[in-house]
Each structure stands twice: as C-alpha cells, then as structure tokens.
Computed example of a mutant assay.
Amino acid sequence: MDIKEPEKLFHKIQRMRDDGWIDEDYAIRAITLKQFGDIAVHQYKTFTKDEAQDILDFTYALVEYCLDFKLKFHKLKNNIKIKKRKSQEFGEDAEINALSDSELEYLDKMLSDSNKSFSYYAAITLLKANIKIEKIVPILIGIYNNNEFQYMKKDIINYFKNISSVVVLELIKLLKDSSITNDQRKIQIMAVTLLGDMGTDAQQAIPVLVNALIANSDISIKATHSLIKLGGDAVSSVIKIYEEKLNSVANLPL
C-alpha cells in the first residue's frame, strides 16, 4: 500500500515520532522550535536580540543532540575499559577479543553444524564480535523458537538488544525479502514474533509489521501480536492504515 508523505513540517515531525525515528521529547522540542518560526514568518512578529540568541542556541543544541549526541554516547558506551568494568561488576559474559582468520573459519563452519549447541555457540560468539550478523540472525531466530532451547530465549533477546539497530534492520530485510521459499517462510513468521519480543528496541519495524498485518496471510496474526507488544508506539501507525482502509472502502462504486 502506498503511504503518502505528509506535506507540512508539523505532520512530518509527527510521522518521524510515530515511525520511531525520534522520541516524544524530541518531537515536542522540534514542534516548539517550529512554532517560533511560524510566529516570525506568518505573524510577522519580531524578537529581541536576547530572544533571537536563545532560539539560535536552542536550535544548535537540538541539532547537536540529534546528530552528534547518540554517536558520542555509543562510542563512549562501547569503550573497552568501561565494558570490561561493567562485565566484572555485573557478572556479564567476557568480551570477545579480535578473532583470527582461522577462528572465524571454524566458527563459520559451526554455524551450519547439525549439533545446535555448536551452532548456538558460534552464532552468539560472532554476534558479540559484531561479525556476520546477516548470516547469524536467521540461525538465532531458529534457536530462539526451538523448544529445546527455551532457557536461552532471554539471553538471545539481550544479545539482540545490545546491537538492536543492526539486528532490527536484518529482521526487516528478512521480512521484505520476496524471494523467500516456503521452507524459509517459517523463519519470517518467527522474525515477526521476535520483533514483538524486542519491545521498544524494534520501533523502527512498526511500518513493516503494519504491512504484514494487512497482508491477510499466515503472518498477519503474529504481526498483530507483535504490534500489541510494542504498545503505544504502534497505535498511530495502525490507525493510519485502518483509516486508509475505511476511505478506500467508502470510495468504492456502489
């Protein structure tokens, strides 16, 4: 279904918030800044030098937060000294050092081993090293949904959340893949369930889940459950699609 982009800046900000690109607080700040622009342009109001400087300072702060803050925080958070200290304090798994070519070769072979324990170990080890993500995500989805590995579900979710932006993109790519065979269809259904279990970390996948919901296929019910798990973040997107459905029905010739 073709979803038209909003023309007005206010609605574009709302769309970015609804689709998970910005949070509620950032949306409120952006709308507040827009209101100052509206006053100047449409009401022809003037601002004092101090007011103009305050608006300019706020604009710079908003842009810096959007473009620079998250990158700097990610870099600081992933500092090896901090991560090592954190793992020692909270009893977390030890970090994976740089893997040699030989180790990577064997881990790659383990991924396709019939023994799921080998496959799981290789997948998690590569995930923690942020290597071969595209290849290991489907494997971990399968393990996540394997009844024999129920006790590992929480760990897999936590590992996925550590690099949620990468994993969610791979899950979205998997759901959009039109070349999926019937045998691989089960993996897509599992991916939909996993996105719901990832909670707020999967906000970016809401539009894809909404499209899956309206597909009226074996994946629709799973997509519905996942959207329910994502809570209020998904409400506006689902309502928007439903409004379009009602409008299309109303416009049908009698």
Rank of each mutant, 00 (worst) to 15 (best):
A52D: 13
I55N: 06
K72G: 01
L62I: 08
M110K: 14
K34P: 09
I39K: 13
T59D: 08
S87H: 01
G91A: 09
Q43N: 12
T32N: 11
K75F: 07
E89L: 15
F47H: 01
N78D: 03
D25Q: 14
I39M: 13
I31V: 07
Y65L: 13
L104R: 11
K77D: 09
Q14R: 12
M110P: 05
C66H: 15
E105I: 05
I39R: 12
L76D: 04
F58N: 14
D108Q: 11
D108W: 10
K12M: 12
F36K: 13
L56M: 14
D18M: 10
L76P: 02
I13D: 00
E103T: 07
D38K: 03
E89F: 13
A40H: 08
T32V: 07
R15W: 04
S102H: 10
T48K: 01
A94P: 13
K70W: 11
K109S: 00
H42L: 02
D38P: 03
T46Y: 05
H74K: 12
S102D: 13
M110S: 09
A40T: 04
K84R: 02
T48M: 00
D23C: 02
Y65D: 15
A61T: 06
V41W: 13
Y44C: 09
D18R: 11
F90D: 10
K86W: 10
D19H: 10
D57A: 07
Y65K: 15
L62W: 03
N97K: 15
A30P: 08
A61C: 05
T46W: 02
K86G: 04
A94K: 14
D38R: 02
D38I: 01
L111P: 06
F73P: 01
H42M: 01
K49Y: 00
K70N: 10
K72P: 01
G91N: 07
W21A: 11
R85H: 06
K81Y: 07
Q88G: 07
F69C: 03
K109W: 03
E24A: 10
D68K: 08
G37H: 01
F58S: 14
T48A: 00
L111Q: 11
S87R: 08
K77I: 05
G37L: 04
R85G: 02
H42R: 04
I13G: 00
D19K: 09
T48H: 00
M110F: 15
S100C: 05
K84E: 00
E92C: 09
D93G: 09
K77S: 09
